[in-house]
Nucleic acid binder design. Structure first.
Lengths: 304, 304
DNA sequence: TATGGTTATGAACCCAATTCATAATTTCTT
DNA sequence: AAGAAATTATGAATTGGGTTCATAACCATA
């Protein structure tokens, strides 16, 4: 009766706190999850979730099942790693090109974990700027590109990671602090603080400012903390993924504002060659990435 | 891809050492298991079983998966016990009537385990002889009857346990030692050593000797070891389940012979009231019983 | 070489999980 | 308070994957 799919659903419910969000997380319909939950409850004669206003909460029974899920799913992945070792598919290289600078935040701990699990995989970050990172895959200079590119291309697989919102970051006393939502025009007279990458790699410029014919001043910094430091000391404003901001916003170090009525969103993909896509360690890397991101990053949305 | 059903199949393969026997064990066709195995192998790019002449053996990969199965399936049962506690279905009584005396062998350790898992269930053996044990269920004097009865009866559920062979047990120097198979006529002049129960509860008499019009002398003993002791000291022959004999036969304490060309087989069921059948602890008792029996008892066959 | 038993394979089938369509419910907004 | 928006529940329809069926291949033993 209980199946692994139920356990996956339960963890998704736990992580997202909502049936429909959990459904996206496991790539099923909200209806499917509703049926699953109903089946579980009637089987055990116990509710597993409980409405708590906006979001849902797991009951005691639900928590037991989530704890089980954690153990079981991890154990399965462990043995699958063992199997990969046995079939000698546990070695190779995973050279990562990172287009999204902020992603260092979650990639670093992920890489640490990965190194422990796959000691025989040569794990590297490919440094430097690359005009056409996907070409790097084809040329054999890298094994995976993490970025927003996802146009169909033969021989290449774009593994969807997640969608996230990019927020404008301001100093708490910034003149624009009063507006709940910022529009292109608001950026006319500000200095934009970005990572040192070309304009066409910056979503705010590409999708918002350029279409509106606005070209703000730019200043660059390598590290996210440096950017935030500059913002806080009123040298300009930045546009950063929402997830990395929570701590700084909570401590009133900076404030964050939505860009445009619907917000500015960006999709993240992990692209590989078709042939590397099937390697066990690559698959494990991807699921670990998704797991840790969805578990630790606030406000991200699963991608089809 | 990997599902709990695969894990169950793997353990069955491990326990039975044969695809078709494992199929019976998990109540599927041999074909279904064959497909499952094929799917597993092609998914992991590894064989999980290996032919070893008559029987099969698990490969290293298979052993990893079996180890996983042990952990995972046990953890699931653990949390299901927790859920039963939460839903307050973890208390009640389990008074067992045992028609098959030899079954004490496996029932005792089983009861010990059960007591640890379900401390709030009142566990008891209903002692004494009962002419109609199923009636005892209806009268509320017992909760489960372990025996061979399985005729349809409304309000009663007969949970199949397993089929086992009853072998004739002789002293090593017994005159009949030369025959590989014993027939009804061979029992004409022997003393039959049995448990102290009526004739119609003894399969050998009921199904073999009575139809042939043979009525051997009888002598009774309470305990299996006592019966074996009497057999070894040439006071007569006995008919006992094959599984309990292995140790004694291996040590040349007694010898065992098939009864009739196809052997004498008996089916074991656990009968309960319909209403008690759904209780979590009862279900757990049954699966534990089957698990331990199939894991520890040689030569038993699953029952539809 | 036959024979009984076990396993493999492809096609057909069937059920159960999912989706679809929609209703019911809740929450947010004005 | 009422209407709009979002979320969840439910029943019917669909579909896809796992199982069975039928049969072939294979393997040991006589």
């Amino acid at each position: 009766m209980l199946e692994l799919r139920h356990l996956r659903t339960l963890t998704a419910l736990h992580e997202t706190g909502s049936v429909s969000r959990a459904a996206k997380r496991v790539h099923l319909t909200q209806s499917a999850l509703s049926h699953q939950i109903k089946a579980l409850q009637s089987h055990y004669g116990l509710p597993v979730i409980q409405r708590r206003g906006q979001s849902i909460e797991l009951t005691e029974a639900g928590k037991h099942l989530v704890a089980l899920a954690g153990k079981v799913l991890e154990e399965i992945r462990e043995t699958e790693r063992d199997l990969a070792k046995i079939s000698q598919q546990a070695s190779g290289s995973l050279r990562i090109v990172l287009e999204c600078h902020t992603c260092f935040d979650w990639l670093m701990p992920l890489m640490d974990e990965f190194r422990q699990h796959w000691p025989d995989v040569e794990l590297d970050l490919v440094s430097g700027f690359h005009a056409d990172p996907v070409k790097l895959l084809e040329e054999g200079g890298a094994d995976i590109v993490i970025g927003s590119e996802h146009k169909r291309q033969r021989g290449i697989v774009h593994h969807p990671l997640f969608r996230f919102e990019i927020l404008a970051v301001l100093a708490p006393e910034h003149p624009l602090r009063g507006k709940r939502i910022l529009h292109a025009s608001d950026f006319a007279d500000v200095t934009l603080i970005t990572y040192p990458v070309p304009e066409d790699r910056i979503d705010l410029i590409l999708n918002v400012l350029k279409p509106a014919g606005i070209q703000p001043q730019r200043r660059t910094a390598e590290l996210t903390v440096a950017i935030l430091q500059l913002v806080a000391s009123r040298r300009g404003v930045a546009a950063l993924p929402s997830w990395g901001l929570k701590n700084y916003v909570d401590h009133d170090y900076v404030i964050a504002r939505r860009i445009g009525a619907n917000g500015l969103w960006s999709d993240l993909y992990a692209s590989t060659l078709k042939e590397t896509a099937s390697r066990p360690y690559l698959r494990d890397f991807l699921t670990t990435a998704r797991n840790t991101c969805f578990a630790t990053l606030d406000g991200i949305i699963p991608l089809a």
